[in-house]
Write a protein that binds this DNA or RNA. Structure first.
Length: 885
DNA sequence: TGTTTCACG
DNA sequence: ACGTACGTGAAACAT
């Protein structure tokens, strides 16, 4: 037999039992349409996926008990006599588990008069003789008696997804005896749950001691007469028959009459089609999503699509039609602010018209049709399409379906940037961008235009095909207004912001580059001197050697690859060596230099502007993100970095930068959704929230007694609460002991009981529904909330607490941005909205408009939504972004 | 390509 | 007892 064959044996009953109780707390949430529970099925399948991945078996068998009576009950009628009846909710799942295994291509087996253990023992033994490796999965530790060099027994601990692996060494380590001696141990001590007796007053400890001394039960009785007179000796003699019987009962058969050949157990993987149907029937969305759904060959259908030329006649026909059309504007390149359009395709759901001749965009009829809001259109990624067409002098309106946005709202978890990936989620085969164009050096536009146009036609077809289904899902989720009134209009606002761009003075950055270069060189020399050698300061590895080996500074924290040299570590080493402060300085300047001073210059376009791209469909919370470059993390906290903002200027002389930000928006959202009266009062009365919190948690009578340090700590606690607090996290953040942190939190929850209630409720909600929601019904699914892994589960809990807060704040500013754009038009202001940084908006405007903005902007922002607490907006303005703060 | 570090809210 | 703050993007180094 070849070496790499591996048999996986699963104890079906005991694992199902474990699975059932592991997810007992969500029993009522895992129910099919017909009212059958599925929690054990779900957990069982989870376990299966993990084990199959880890073990990579070539053969698999799941063994089940056949019935109540076995050869053991014949030997001893009370065997398993007192065991509680299997709950009905689990009983009904056992056939489903069998069905699941069948669909997963896994053999199941049961044998009259024998238990699953015996089937497993027999097959394990057989496989071992054939030279195979064997892994057994069970919830029952008694099976560890099967352990040998070739047979590993993994016993479930905490639920079913984690196991403890028993090898002969591990058994020895844990019990001090060999696997074969486990039956002797069980014989002596008996078994409560299987209800057989053993020797009176002998438990695990005594049993192990006796076996270590005499080798086996038989060995003990050979020498029992030599023992000193004792109660133990009396019991041993009295219960001899019971001990021998119990040993027999505990012994797993290695030669049960199993009619299976190893060849029958060969594992060939899932029966995909059946499995998909089964998952659908069970409502197992997570598992469906996890599947590599087979390539249902739509390509075949799509080959038949005839792409007609998008010529003048076609354009006339499209323009005259009242039908909805699907529009594909295809570009080639990384960044759509520079990438060329390489193809255009318009489909009316039946006929396709496409071209690679981009001059078609000069056709006035087409231009008019594109810009006509009354001509209904579907597409994938409105923002990109608007930006692309803008560069070619076209406007576009009338979009009712943006597949990218809808896919994101339906499920933020998967990567939705690519239409091919979205299609795959709906079991439609469409190549991804990478699959179609290739990647790396091979990335290229197909030479044959018909291939490209066919691809565009496929995209259009997919959009048509999935539109109704996706829109109805949106409605089911109560997310239609989130889409209609927020995300879709916002995509136009964002497009406009990106296209406008923000003016950046390259000369200013150049100047800074020189200054910082000189400073870096100076610090660098100092560091080399203090370190006694030259090395790459930017290399955490080399720096670690210098600090912790050459200079022998104490190691505070390690990463998985070596010493940690992050700021919090260096801060603690500051007074141990003068080199540390220099390294901190170097790091800071070097970051500013590489990422911002040098980095930003690369993105300045010939129009002296930077055009970022906002990703509207990336974050899990509903926030935007900004790339190429990221304009949402321009330094502000330390002055050297803040200087960067002096390069960001308005596009015209006599204009200014104007900024407006929400003050403590997340805490206000928390006050609103938690309904906590004390916190709401603080905002309604416009108190300094952090000082007010300090007063409360430190038990003071007035905020006058709050010291700056108390306020600082209270502020950190407020942040911690928003993040889904833990005492450890808070203690790390403000440098107090964990105990103190725990006391802070306890006191906080006492003062803000509504907040405590919210935290408990939202976690419960996530467990019961599998997702959490923002005030605008933005959803985030949290499958990890059911994880058996402590860390993963806790992470999901914190996410459940934080997402509605961060996400609702994101909803609010999105509404404000849309209203803002409307207001600017309505008031006929020249001011431009340029940037969004999560809780602030940055504008450029003629000086003459500043006074107007100071009135109108806050009013638009604080009226975006109506909360139980007021929203507060602060504004600033100046010649550059630096001064507008 | 993954890891570490650090910039922002 | 378990190890921890939430959400991002980019640069540099190491592999």
């Amino acid at each position: 037999m070849s070496k790499n064959k591996k048999l996986l044996l699963i104890d079906g009953n005991s694992v199902s039992f474990r699975a059932f109780f592991a997810m007992h707390n969500v029993l009522d949430k895992f129910v099919t349409g017909d009212g059958i529970h599925t929690n054990a099925l779900y957990a069982f399948n989870n376990m299966l996926e993990i084990v199959l991945k880890e073990e990579q078996p070539t053969h698999v068998l799941v063994a089940f008990d056949a019935g109540k009576t076995t050869f053991r009950t014949k030997m001893f009628t009370e065997y398993k006599g007192t065991r509680a009846k299997t709950p009905q909710e689990l009983m009904e799942q056992l056939p489903l588990i069998q069905e699941l295994l069948n669909d997963r291509g896994i053999k199941t087996y049961e044998l009259a008069d024998y238990e699953a253990d015996d089937i497993i023992g027999t097959m394990a033994h057989k496989a071992e003789k054939d030279g195979m490796d064997v892994t057994v999965i069970t919830g029952d530790r008694d099976l560890t008696q099967l352990t040998t060099d070739k047979i590993t027994v993994r016993v479930n601990v905490k639920g079913v997804t984690e196991t403890e692996a028993y090898t002969p060494e591990h058994v020895k380590e844990k019990l001090g005896i060999t696997p074969q001696q486990i039956i002797d141990m069980k014989g002596l001590m008996g078994d409560n749950s299987d209800h057989y007796p053993g020797v009176e007053k002998v438990g695990e400890k005594t049993a192990i001691k006796l076996i270590a001394q005499y080798g086996s039960i038989e060995g003990i009785y050979e020498h029992v007469d030599e023992m000193k007179k004792s109660k133990l000796k009396e019991h041993l003699i009295n219960d001899k028959d019971q001990a021998l019987l119990s040993k027999k009962l505990a012994t797993i058969q290695l030669d049960a009459p199993v009619e299976l050949q190893l060849g029958d157990l060969e594992y060939r993987g899932d029966n995909q089609e059946e499995l998909i149907q089964f998952y659908q029937k069970m409502n197992f969305k997570t598992f469906l999503n996890r599947m590599d759904i087979p390539q249902e060959n739509t390509a075949e259908d799509l080959d038949d699509i005839k792409v007609n030329d998008l010529d003048t006649a076609a354009i006339e026909r499209i323009a005259a039609s009242t039908k909805t059309h699907t529009l594909i504007v295809e570009s080639f390149g990384e960044n759509y602010h520079t990438a060329p359009i390489i193809g255009i395709l318009i489909s009316d759901g039946k006929d396709c018209f496409g071209t690679t001749d981009i001059s078609v965009l000069e056709n006035p009829t087409l231009k008019k049709w594109l810009a006509d809001a009354s001509k209904d259109k579907y597409l994938f990624d409105n923002k990109m399409t608007v930006a692309l067409l803008h560069r070619y002098g076209c406007e576009i309106a009338g979009i009712s379906f943006d597949m990218l946005l809808v896919a994101y709202l339906l499920d933020t978890n998967d990567n939705k940037q690519d239409i091919g990936l979205v299609a795959k989620n709906y079991n439609v085969n469409l190549p991804t961008e990478e699959e179609f164009y290739g990647k790396g050096v091979k990335k290229a536009i197909p030479e044959d235009d018909t291939i490209l146009l066919n691809f565009l036609a496929q995209k259009a077809q997919v959009i048509d095909q999935l539109k109704d289904k996706m829109m109805s899902e949106l409605k089911d989720n109560d997310q239609d207004s989130l889409y209609d009134e927020i995300e879709l209009p916002l995509s136009n606002v964002l497009a406009e912001m990106e296209i406008k761009g923000i003016t950046v003075e390259a000369s200013k950055l150049k100047e800074m580059e020189n200054t910082f270069a000189t400073r870096l060189a100076e610090i660098e020399q100092k560091i080399y001197q203090e370190a006694g050698k030259e090395f790459n300061i930017n290399s955490p590895k080399q720096l670690g050697v210098v600090l912790f080996e050459d200079l022998k500074l104490p190691v505070i924290k390690k990463t998985k690859t070596g010493y940690s040299t992050s700021v919090d570590v260096l801060e603690k080493l500051k007074d141990k060596s003068p080199v540390v402060q220099n390294i901190l300085d170097y790091r800071q300047i070097s970051k500013i230099q590489s990422t911002y001073v040098v980095g930003l210059q690369k993105f300045i376009h010939p129009d002296n502007k930077i055009h970022t791209i906002y990703l509207q469909t990336l974050t899990q919370t509903g926030r935007l993100s900004s790339i190429e470059p990221n304009l949402q993390n321009i330094p502000i906290r330390v002055d050297e970095g803040k200087q960067i903002r002096k390069a960001f200027v308005p596009q015209h002389e006599d204009w200014e930068i104007f900024s407006a930000d929400y003050s403590q928006v997340e805490l206000r959202v928390l006050a609103h959704i938690s309904g906590d009266e004390n916190m709401q009062e603080a905002f309604k009365e416009n108190y300094d929230i952090h000082a007010h919190t300090a007063m409360r948690i430190f038990g003071l009578d007035s905020t006058d007694e709050v010291t700056p340090n108390m306020r600082r700590q209270a502020k950190a606690t407020n942040f911690g609460i928003v993040y889904g607090i833990s005492d450890y996290g808070l203690s790390q953040n403000i440098g107090i002991t964990r105990k103190q942190a725990a006391a802070f939190i306890a006191s906080y929850f006492e003062q803000y009981p509504g907040v405590k209630q919210y935290m408990d409720d939202i976690v419960k909600y996530a467990r019961e529904n599998g997702y959490v929601e923002t005030i605008m019904h933005r959803r985030r699914y949290l499958p990890d909330i059911h994880s058996s892994n402590f860390n993963i589960r806790n992470f999901a809990k914190r996410t459940a607490m934080n997402t509605p807060i961060q996400g609702s704040a994101a909803d609010i500013i999105k509404v404000a941005m849309i209203n803002m754009q409307k207001m600017l038009v309505k008031e006929k202001l020249q001011a431009n909205l340029l940037l969004q940084v999560h809780d602030e908006m940055i504008f450029e405007a003629p000086k003459s408009e500043i006074a107007t903005l100071e009135k109108l902007v806050p009013s638009v922002m604080d009226s975006a939504v109506k909360l139980d607490v007021p929203l507060k907006v602060e504004t600033a303005h100046g010649k550059t972004w630096y001064e507008a703060k």
